[in-house]
């Protein structure tokens, strides 16, 4: 039992004190960053929570079936959001096919067909830049081109085309990402089996990238139907007693109606605006949940 004392002094390869010091430093940094990031998260959440609380507190009392079915009115208790709600839904139904065909088409061309060169990357840079252009600029474009030059007037189709143009860059970029994520091996396999380029694109690449493409489209549409500025530029009406009847009808949309109500002097209209915000929020949340569901349902198969 005397052996332990005879043990030679081991050379210290690791100095516990130094390690401890260094580890405690790292732990401090670790904790500090954790707190910073948590604050970052909480800041957004708290602000969102306050906003939601305010909106629901002000608006919940105004929500009713009548609110969904009535036209706007000078009397807050009779005022409803029907034409605006319909306007927004019609806009959505017009925008989705437009941006699907144009956006995905452009993305497929850029990824599958276009020769990678200076010209293509120039176009791609420009598309990415377009995604950052303020929406009101698209409104101006819509006013000059669709409303005036093409002679559509301030109609649903002019509004939808304007919003579609605004959403296109985002859709093209996200579709490109999705198409790029399809493994080359899939294309090669398809081509090796004798499929043509078009067959490969349509039957292999597009289905494989569809979840990403659709997620991008839904997010772009969610943003588009929350826009006020371009629609006001295009000349969307604020008072309109009826829902649009066709693509050449005058129209209004939820954000415009909300904007109008918030600027009225009577306090009751602020409540109506809050109720309108709740409706818009429900639509947006539904769209976003749909995007998440589609992504989870159809992704990660390759």
């Amino acid at each position: 039992m005397a052996l332990p004392e005879k043990q030679p002094v081991q050379k210290k390869f690791i100095d516990p004190a130094a390690v401890k010091k260094s580890i405690s430093q790292r732990l401090v940094v670790n904790n500090v960053t954790k707190v910073v990031f948590l604050i970052g998260l909480l800041f957004g959440l708290v602000v969102l929570g306050i906003l939601l609380f305010g909106v629901i507190r002000d608006g919940a009392a105004w929500l009713s079936l009548d609110f969904l079915q009535n036209a706007p009115s000078r009397r807050p208790d009779r005022a409803g959001i029907y034409p605006a709600l319909m306007g927004s839904i019609f806009l959505m139904l017009l925008i989705i096919p437009m941006i699907f065909i144009l956006g995905v088409g452009a993305a497929i061309y850029l990824e599958e067909y276009a020769k990678k060169g200076r010209m293509t990357s120039f176009i791609e840079v420009n598309i990415s830049n377009l995604a950052g252009v303020p929406s009101i600029v698209f409104g101006l474009l819509g006013l000059t081109f669709f409303v005036r030059n093409m002679g559509f007037g301030s109609t649903l189709i002019a509004g939808a085309l304007t919003l579609a143009l605004m959403s296109l860059p985002v859709v093209i970029v996200s579709s490109q990402e999705a198409i790029r994520a399809v493994p080359q091996a899939m294309r090669h396999a398809s081509l090796a089996l004798g499929a043509s380029k078009w067959q490969t694109t349509f039957k292999v690449v597009l289905p494989a990238s569809l979840p990403g493409v659709i997620t991008g489209i839904i997010l772009a549409v969610s943003r588009a139907i929350g826009e006020t500025a371009p629609l006001i530029m295009v000349g969307a009406a604020i008072f309109i007693a009826r829902a649009p009847e066709g693509i050449f009808s005058e129209f209004t949309a939820l954000p415009i109606q909300i904007y109008n109500w918030t600027s009225r002097p009577q306090a009751d209209f602020q409540g109506l605006a809050a109720a309108g915000i709740i409706i818009l929020m429900v639509i947006l949340l539904t769209m976003n949940s749909l995007a998440i569901w589609i992504r989870n349902r159809f992704s990660k198969r390759y």
Partner: peptide, 10 residues
């Protein structure tokens, strides 16, 4: 009811 009145605020 058949007349479409639209009011904008430009």
């Amino acid at each position: 009811p058949d007349v479409d009145v639209t009011v904008g605020v430009s």
